[in-house]
Design a binder for these strands. Sequence first.
DNA 1: TAAAATTTTTTATTCAATAAAAATTTATGC
DNA 2: GCATAAATTTTTATTGAATAAAAAATTTTA
Lengths: 204, 204
Amino acid sequence: MTTLRARQKEDRRNRIVSSAKTLFRKHGYEKTTIEGIAEAAGVSGVTVHNYYGTKAGVLLALVIESDKQLIERLEDSLSRDEDDLIELTIQFARHILDHAIANLDKEIWRQVIAAVTTSAGTQLTKAYFKLDQQLAFVLVRRIEALQAAGKIPESVNAVHLGKALFHLENARFIQFISSDDCTQKDIEERLRNDLTALFAVRAA
Amino acid sequence: MTTLRARQKEDRRNRIVSSAKTLFRKHGYEKTTIEGIAEAAGVSGVTVHNYYGTKAGVLLALVIESDKQLIERLEDSLSRDEDDLIELTIQFARHILDHAIANLDKEIWRQVIAAVTTSAGTQLTKAYFKLDQQLAFVLVRRIEALQAAGKIPESVNAVHLGKALFHLENARFIQFISSDDCTQKDIEERLRNDLTALFAVRAA
DNA sequence: TAAAATTTTTTATTCAATAAAAATTTATGC
DNA sequence: GCATAAATTTTTATTGAATAAAAAATTTTA
């Protein structure tokens, strides 16, 4: 049974997050004030704080929602007949970058990264890392498929490999958002260089 | 010719940074106020802002100084007869983690990462990334040495490999500081897993 | 429907950040 | 060597994030 209070609360959360997204996209992160978000959502500024703790908390909540959608779609949008691990990883990165810039611009993504690191241990950060984990496992499952197809040695630990590739992708993602000049193409090239070099270490 | 003004300015910079380091270590980042730093340094709060822009800017300045020392020493402290790339990289990571926790605690390193990402493009951030670059090249030179010794194929691009390994190490460093529970041992193990999996992709 | 419980709002405070005016100190020309 | 010009710091004031406590409003329940 959902009480009236629970429904009202849920409603306020939705209004706050959706107002925030509009304002962040319209005016950027810095110029958007908590008071502004509150007004657009029809609550008081303190209520926004009570709900999300900080302005960065509101941003994180909004990113978590959009990342859930990304994960839902990613599994399907990754081409199923790519049998080269390098190209697969680059495709994976491409989907993530596409999704990121479709939702928020670089300036705001920088705030996301900052928020995630400073507010380590909070509920929202845990939720964020859980989604990261799920993203990594999309790669893990593809690696297992490649192993089943004989494209990657069975001796390789798919979980370890997937996580390592995800970390690398993530490092390049952060590099992407950290500079306004860095293009998606730059990132793909760097990622390709990374993987080519790493995979060649033990090549015969 | 160094004018009196230039010397005074340099002096104030030193006092601000050194007061800040003391206070950050003593009371943590949040509880240290700009006004407190200013008082300890014998200047006004606005002067601290004029010099470093933000509280995070002061922190960054202080980290850059200490990272310069790290780089100076790192080249020598890395064992010269380690011929396994995995162990070399782990050793590299160990030195960086050791240096990090010897200087500031995790809470403050989180603020450093946040500051670097949010204030992308500023002078201090550029200086920070330049040092990162130098760190990566310590690895690159070791890789070249391993190639010369026939331990790694000459076909591998040492610069690409060094940078990729550095990114991986950096990702694990951020993971280290992001959780109070994560030990250095955990990080070494994860890094070993990363590299073992990556290097085994093309293994015969 | 009235009392109790919960939640939001009001009010107030601290601190970061920024801007403009005022004051101080250093540098320079006579 | 002193008066004036230039540069730099400090004072003062304002906005906004974050937090806490009291007051007000609304929902729940008895």
